[in-house]
Design a protein around this nucleic acid. Structure first.
Lengths: 345, 345
DNA sequence: GGCACCGCGGAAAACGCTTTCTTAGGCCCT
DNA sequence: AGGGCCTAAGAAAGCGTTTTCCGCGGTGCC
């Protein structure tokens, strides 16, 4: 019978008994405290090995006041963007011995703040992706969530770094690209109405419109997934636009698929652009012109910011950083052809 | 000053003081124990609300011996298959109030078993996806990981359900499909050599070959990602095969991309098939013929099995289940054309 | 009217660990 | 040789909960 204490699992007490020392000494040995006599330390290590003792992390966390775990709140795990952030975050955190706990809000923004709070309490810090949460609510909960890193949101709360992608600039770059190809009638297939990043895109478009009064830009309602793009075909054709800026790559792919079904050629008839440069964007047919965002790196940076906060409660307040998307011209955009009529078919 | 105790965070003791009761009573109220006088309960609740008291989950976990968290070990978070499993698992677990902790082994199978152990100790149960781990090692660690659910692996250890996809049958279905289209020279673009699911596919192919001695099946070395497929173009062409079974959808997509660059037509010149039916498989050009696996559902089922194990230490030992892939015929497969020479160009 | 029981809530133990405090013993120094 | 110091390890106090165990006061019953 190896297991001894009532709990079934072997604990520090079992090792202590076996090694004939107090559990304090066992703890010291396990934590590499060198004030222990080498002979005794060896005895303890032998006992621990024989019993296959593994410290209980929960007890450890309680005593230490830290969990070596961070949380991430995402609105939708099915979205490649958040998958990539998670991946970068997880990899970077793992290198420092931290694990990540995921909290998927499934796009129900009303739950986001409770979810975030719960996740935070189990962790040493939090990365929050909450594109739909209202500014007011964010402002309200941010302080209680620290150490906290925000993705694509900002807050006035102190000590809360933000990692934001400059969607506004990205959209402008794409629009410029289309204009250079001769397009004069553009359409923006918008994202979810309350999305923060959608707002940034709209602002970018305003700037663009001011600089290019001769270009017509139609606003179309949309969403953030493949189906949204697929369903938007009619609206897109009706707009008469020859250059379409989709909210993101997924929407663009859906749109291209829909256009293809209608027998239209991309980019022959219509040029389509995405945003994000998800892994699959390279492999669509035609390959998708998009604004590349270093998403995985974003997750990695999120960890670095969070780590600074965790390690150094006071100083080293890290600044927020802004990521510039890089225009990735591929085959889905081409020269504008002669203006089409507003009627499709 | 709301915060009182040294730790900075407000705890049960603060609420107790404010409400003028013992912390035991506060605990009783917070846990819905009805043996507390309604007046006192109200007072406690008021105090808790005013202080915005939130129980510390770590202390709670220690006392209760459970964490309301499960872990999942995956070999590669970048792989859509594991993303889907994770998604299904997370969603299902969330509905029962459980969170999921992720452990990405980054394909280094030597670390997998330590990683799994560490994850397990922080959680109430574990879902293990470890396709490269040796049977011996799996057998060795499985008992200590319980409650445990295995994905695409089996073990002799008791009380360890397995959820396995019948890759062997899937591969046979695909091969049959190609044969029906008139292909007589097939090639299998294999997965990672030590992958368990690759082994299952190979077994399926053996069965197929026995049933169709007239069909030539070439084995090609490969891997599990897009680049693998892309780099395999030469080997594929050299094989002279007209029907290619790629290890999975990613590999198939890479292969199609490579073939396209060579100016070859799919399925005109060569038919290509994948496996898994990842979300993007529908949207490749041409759309990919594949064997659809209900991956998200797999994650969901993993939770249900795990939940049964967690809730009911003894009875209800759930059986292992086997998932049959469903052949999904799309545009990447077509009738075989006249046999080609072994030289490409 | 006394006794047994019951309901309620406080004290304290338990969960498994870390860390401070304490004490015992050995060494050095004068 | 004795006292102060320093070292090493045990005792115990936390960490923040839950839960068991008790005791107290009140009620019902005979």
């Amino acid at each position: 019978m190896v297991r001894k204490s009532a709990s079934g699992r072997i604990g520090i007490a079992d090792v202590a008994v076996k090694a004939g020392v107090s559990h304090a000494t066992v703890s010291r040995v396990m934590n590499g405290n060198f004030t222990v006599d080498p002979d005794i330390a060896a005895r303890v290590r032998a006992a621990a090995a024989e019993l296959k003792y593994q410290p209980n992390p929960v007890g450890r966390s309680l005593a230490l006041g830290k969990t070596d775990t961070i949380g991430i709140v995402v609105p939708d795990l099915a979205n490649p963007t958040f998958q990539a952030i998670l991946r970068g975050l997880s990899r970077a955190a793992a290198q420092d011995g931290y694990r990540v706990l995921i909290a998927d809000s499934f796009e129900v923004s009303s739950e986001e703040s409770i979810l975030a709070g719960e996740a935070r309490r189990r962790c040493d810090g939090l990365v929050l992706c909450a594109p739909r949460m209202s500014d007011a609510e964010l402002e309200e909960i941010a302080p209680s969530l620290r150490p906290l890193v925000l993705i694509n949101r900002t807050t006035a709360a102190a000590e809360v770094p933000s990692l934001v992608v400059d969607y506004g600039q990205g959209v402008q770059d794409i629009a410029e690209h289309l204009v250079e190809l001769g397009h004069t009638r553009l359409a923006f297939l918008a994202g979810p109405p309350r999305s923060a990043s959608n707002g940034m895109r709209l602002q970018g478009l305003e700037t663009f419109k001011a600089a290019h009064p001769q270009v017509e830009v139609t606003m179309l309602e949309g969403g953030s997934d493949f189906d949204t793009g697929h369903e938007a075909v009619d609206a897109v054709l009706e707009s008469g636009a020859t250059g379409i800026l989709a909210f993101n790559d997924l929407v663009a792919m859906g749109l291209m698929s829909g256009l293809h079904e209608r027998g239209l050629d991309v980019p022959g008839d219509i040029s389509v652009t995405g945003f994000d440069d998800i892994p699959f964007a390279k492999y669509t047919t035609p390959a998708l012109t998009t604004a590349a965002v270093p998403i995985t790196e974003l997750g990695e940076q999120a960890w670095h910011q969070l780590r600074a906060l965790i390690r150094n409660e006071e100083s080293a307040a890290p600044g927020s950083s802004r990521y510039q998307p890089r225009l990735e011209v591929r085959a889905s955009t081409g020269p504008a052809k002669a203006p089409r009529s507003k009627v499709h078919g």
